[in-house]
């Protein structure tokens, strides 16, 4: 997966969690949680969906790496390079 495909994947997962999520003014460098009104329970869904869809086991200490859309792409790119 390319960096852009990973970002699309994350947005698709978020849309699945909250079908009213508004991506129009999303800043890819800013934390997703604040911008999209997600709480820690919603955030766990992103991790669980990545595991379900791509068999990715993301350790709890790495969760902060998924904070913004760009940091997701950076963190996940090597893990999803063959996906």
């Amino acid at each position: 997966m390319t960096s852009d495909e990973i970002k699309d994947l994350i947005l698709e997962i978020i849309e699945d969690i909250d079908d009213e999520a508004d991506f129009a003014s999303l800043d890819a460098d800013q934390p997703l949680r604040d911008q999209l009104d997600l709480d820690s329970m919603d955030f766990l869904d992103i991790v669980m969906e990545l595991r379900k869809r791509h068999k990715l086991q993301i350790p709890e200490e790495d969760y902060p790496q998924l904070a913004s859309l760009n940091s997701c792409a950076t963190y996940l790119e090597p893990l999803l390079k063959d996906a």
């Binding site: 909250d18 009104d37 709480d39 329970m41 919603d42 869904d45």
Partner: peptide, 12 residues
């Protein structure tokens, strides 16, 4: 009210 317990629960 997205963050209200009822709506959070249904989302989860």
């Amino acid at each position: 009210e997205k963050k209200a317990p009822l709506n959070r629960l249904l989302r989860q």
